[in-house]
């Protein structure tokens, strides 16, 4: 029996994916928002004077980078509630997992960007009487932020795609919605192709958005 591409099934899949898409976007945006805060904090901690603080951030980064996100998701959603007795909704769990996971990678991006700023900038800031914190806030951070944009865009794309793994903890996001549709119509080819198209449109949009942001910051000075 020859395979026939069902064009109508392909197109009809898109409206059905909308609810899952909404969740995917919510989790990705929420997760990356907190992930950026967490990552900035951990990245700056890696540059702290105190060895304890540096080690603490180091352990976090290594533990997350060294384990699969799938395991982290299962552990947080099924494992942790057993230990602490508090159940969280799959969506909240999804946001936490994306935040904690992306935070570890963003920490390294932040550390690298801050370290790449010429030490003369810090000396100039300190020499006019700014405190360490003020120097970071007004002199180093704005310059580092600009250098973070390309690798951050990369991480945003990776994390967006990683939300698909959250289907295992029952988050009705894009991937899971696609799976549910196939379980009814058995048209895996058309449905997953549609799912892939939706992811591709989102990741290309992020890449394009980051490119434009970078260009804007370049022309309107650093």
């Amino acid at each position: 029996m020859a395979f026939v591409f069902e064009t109508s099934v392909f197109w009809d899949t898109f409206p059905m994916l909308m609810r899952g898409l909404k969740l995917t976007v919510q989790i990705a945006v929420g997760g990356l928002f907190f992930g950026f805060i967490l990552g900035s904090l951990a990245g700056l901690m890696k540059l702290a004077r105190s060895l304890v603080v540096r080690k603490l951030a180091g352990v976090y980064v290594e533990a997350i980078r060294g384990t699969p996100m799938l395991v982290q998701a299962m552990f947080l959603y099924y494992g942790v509630p057993m230990a602490v007795g508090v159940r969280i909704s799959p969506i909240t769990a999804g946001i936490i997992i994306i935040a904690v996971n992306s935070g570890a990678y963003i920490a390294e991006i932040v550390r690298g960007a801050v370290q790449s700023i010429n030490p003369g900038q810090v000396e100039a800031g300190r020499s006019i009487g700014l405190t360490r914190t003020q120097t970071m806030l007004y002199v180093v951070w704005p310059q580092a932020l600009k250098r973070m944009i390309p690798p951050l865009g990369n991480q945003f794309i990776i994390s967006l795609k990683d939300t698909s793994l959250l289907m295992v903890i029952g988050v009705g996001e894009l991937m899971r919605t696609g799976q549910e549709i196939t379980s009814v119509n058995f048209r895996a080819f058309e449905v997953y192709l549609a799912v892939a198209c939706v992811y591709l449109v989102m990741t290309l949009s992020i890449a394009q958005g980051m490119k434009m942001l970078e260009k804007k910051l370049n022309t309107s000075r650093r």
Partner: peptide, 29 residues
């Protein structure tokens, strides 16, 4: 920090803040 504000420094490599306008460079302190 108070001592440093009383003892200004001018560097060989200038070390101006590239993300700030000339006026902002001067007024930050």
């Amino acid at each position: 920090n108070e001592v440093r504000a009383e003892a200004g420094m001018v560097f060989q490599q200038f070390n101006l803040f590239p993300h700030m306008s000339i006026l902002e460079n001067v007024t930050l302190g």
